[in-house]
Design a protein around this nucleic acid. Sequence first.
DNA 1: GGCAAGACTTGCAGCGCTGCAATATGATGT
DNA 2: ACATCATATTGCAGCGCTGCAAGTCTTGCC
Lengths: 343, 343
Amino acid sequence: MPESRRPRLVDVAERAGVSPRTVSNVLHNHPHIRDSTRKKVEEALVALDYRVNLSARALAGRNTGFIALVIPVLDNPYFSSLAAHVIEACAARDWTVLIEQTSAQEDRERNAVFGPASRLVDGVILQLDSIPEEELSRRFSHSSLVLIGEEASAAWADHVAVDNVSAAREATEHVLALGRRRIATAGILPSGLNTTSELRYRGVWQAMEAAGVSLRTDYLLEVGNFRRPDGADAAERLLRLDVLPDALICYNDLIASGMLAKLREAGVSVPEDIAIVGFDDNEESQYQAPPLTTIAWDLGAIAQRCVEQLVERSQPGGDSRPPARTFVGHELIVRESTVSTRP
Amino acid sequence: MPESRRPRLVDVAERAGVSPRTVSNVLHNHPHIRDSTRKKVEEALVALDYRVNLSARALAGRNTGFIALVIPVLDNPYFSSLAAHVIEACAARDWTVLIEQTSAQEDRERNAVFGPASRLVDGVILQLDSIPEEELSRRFSHSSLVLIGEEASAAWADHVAVDNVSAAREATEHVLALGRRRIATAGILPSGLNTTSELRYRGVWQAMEAAGVSLRTDYLLEVGNFRRPDGADAAERLLRLDVLPDALICYNDLIASGMLAKLREAGVSVPEDIAIVGFDDNEESQYQAPPLTTIAWDLGAIAQRCVEQLVERSQPGGDSRPPARTFVGHELIVRESTVSTRP
DNA sequence: GGCAAGACTTGCAGCGCTGCAATATGATGT
DNA sequence: ACATCATATTGCAGCGCTGCAAGTCTTGCC
């Protein structure tokens, strides 16, 4: 087989008997093209099996067709599901998504947002983790940025806001309404740097305060991370206490899953002995034994809004628009880990 | 703030008092550069906060620094975990990973492999799903391709092979060894197009045949997909049968998870009444009630090998190397869904 | 002191495409 | 038939970088 080079725009143009620019116009659905011309070009396109060189297009043109999604980890159902939704939303617009996995390391997050790849993308969707907002706002200028996070943050960038404090408050109120008073909470990070953890704690605290129930310090369970083994660890510490709590707010479903498994092993019954609430509504949570009460975010809506905001920014004049803020709601999904259906 | 353009190589060169080519050499760790020169350049690099334009580099140079990972879906723990591993392996080499999610649709898979984005990448890692191998081998030529899949396939491309047939056989032999004889299997796809499903079925069949046990057709459970709800559906059909099986081979852990939940609900005990085996060893599987016996693949090794093979191919002379084949083993992890630890 | 063999640096061309603005062609009205 | 407008097509320059090959400067050694 001859080592033939890939066809270029000029090759297509030559074959179709038009100028390269016309071929480009056809590819971009330029409004004024005679049908006969379009037909000729399209035939040549097919005959040569032409595929545009995205590097060249990006270099010459205004935008690249890439956006970056910067998240801590991919093998967490919350983020992989978010990523799947973002990819779907982008596919509809012929955008390609670069997923940058930071492993929650600040230097990697910084590299994702400021490094070479950031030059390549038309926009960035960032689940803000450790970069200080102040630094972001100072250095970010070259493309659009959508933050996923708190209502409180960022009056300087578009963002899609979720309300962790309210969500945590509602979760806690739910178990309080069930009559539970010895409430423990799992998901405090020792570093205190992670906003999500802090805000969920704050919500729990608010609900307790409002109900006049005290929060025992030995019921504040630290975790190294937000994964299942961290939940299991926390459960072991919990089981060593003299008095077990009667309710447990876990800051995500993975922690809850780890706790659930260990408690089951120890013969603690859920929800009779301990009611458990999680966050995120991972699909697996409804298949747990017992199915897990949890806070559900509308990930589809979050992804959709992020992409829409990127679209709006990239529209002519979108640059000068004031930062937009969208609130995406949440919902407490009550399942058997807090409310038994057994007789 | 003035709308200053991003600094280019020439700007750095000017500031450092050298030629653009020298700056490029510094960036590429060219061997012969005087320390004093390097120092000047690096200072200018920092002062201007220079970041290379990847589009330009890709256009001018030999490679792009991108590879594509083409998988059916991202919100399946097997694939998100694989993706996470691939991203890690690539990060070490300053490669960026484009994840193409095909939703198991043939046209999207084809677009991912042959479409514009494929022109951009130095290599492709493909979990082959529906594109016929013959078509792939005929059309794929412009960059390196690593297939993840069966030993049987592809003598024309590099691939990292797993052995689904043996794995399924071992899983089945395991339950046979436990004395189970009424063995059901869940994960048959109606289309029959999906290789994985077929191969796992074949393994089950081989083990049954070898043991002289017959496979009842009403124990062959079809699924629409490999997700939890599909498992739950299958479980409902299973529960309507007169005689329940005493063992169940599910073609992935998600199906097993869905089945487990429904069986639990129906009061069927696992493993006493039915022993269950899954595939993939998702992290969640060890947290199930009961923890799930499953086939574990070494995803880290798969990702590692895929990336290594891409590296080897992109080395000078790598082009002409014969296709390499690496086998990645599997392991049956026995947990309580088949072997009870209860007294 | 002269010359080869490094060590170090550079100029040039061009990757393949698109923005821009100009031109060519056709349709319409008078 | 000719100006006018809308439709349709084009040429040119250049995006920012790297491959290549050729250049210049050092150094060591006879």
